[in-house]
Nucleic acid binder design. Structure first.
Lengths: 139, 139
DNA sequence: GCTTCATTTGCAACATTGTTGCATATAACA
DNA sequence: TGTTATATGCAACAATGTTGCAAATGAAGC
């Protein structure tokens, strides 16, 4: 599904930044950081504009934010290229060597039992280690 | 186990900031943010000093950092008051209403299967929702 | 295509979390 | 008590994000 349709379905105005963000995320296999996305858009948009646009996309459920670490924030589309919504409850992998974040779409997060009186609404799982490209490299 | 012994066992100098951080975390039931800890120490130490001290405690394995959200960072002791090391692989709960973070010591993180070639070293689980104090409150 | 108007954007400023360099102060040990 | 490696404070900077306000623009109707 293309960016225009996606925005239209969510009743959002078709602005160049939003289109650019969606396209950049669609073209990238992995979740991207603010810097990556703005660079992909040619570094012509203000940081504030990026943050407001990504906020809109987050609230609309087009994009989700992955906080792998306090300084490692990535954004990923919630839609596959075929336009189907991805499973949202998947784990994420963070490679400590190349800093890449990978959506492990096939790894569902488990249900955890919380103490009496607590209400669990959401669960985030970040697995840290070495990715397939870095695990073979001697350090 | 008192703060002095803890530092001594880890071959760390006994400085007022380190002692203060450990005492503040020991006295608090829940993980604390930078601001909470520095306030508990009377707001007399520089932020840089706090960060360098907490870094030392993190590297020594006395303390661990919980990143519930990019703007919600908390620190907690890895030792119980009896001096025994806590299980480190426990889930954390983040209350979206009162912003409290709770170590769910009795909730162990599960083992997740990662794709071929990936090496999982660590796993962080953050469960978000309402804590026992906030779940009963009508909003 | 043009007008209108709500929405978006850019700029300036500020907040939070964290780091680095360098000079000074201090804990620990002999 | 003196020595020395380590800790601290201050100034500066970086990354991530937010808010206010004026100017620009997308979308819808005519």
């Amino acid at each position: 599904m293309n960016a225009t349709t996606l925005l239209h379905r969510h009743k959002l105005k078709k602005t160049p930044v939003r289109l650019g963000i969606i396209n950049a995320l669609q073209q990238s296999g992995t979740p991207l950081a603010e810097g990556d996305i703005r660079k992909a858009l040619g570094d012509i948009y203000d940081r504030v504009t990026f943050y407001r646009s990504i906020q809109t996309l987050l609230l609309s459920g087009i994009v989700h934010r992955i906080v792998a670490d306090n300084t490692t924030i990535r954004y990923a589309l919630k839609y596959n290229t075929d336009g189907n919504k991805r499973k949202t409850d998947h784990a994420h992998f963070f490679c400590r060597r190349c800093n890449t974040v990978v959506c492990l779409n096939e790894v569902s997060t488990r249900k955890y039992k919380v103490p009496e009186g607590f209400i669990a609404e959401q669960c985030e799982v970040i697995i840290k280690g070495l990715c397939n490209k870095c695990s073979g490299i001697n350090e």
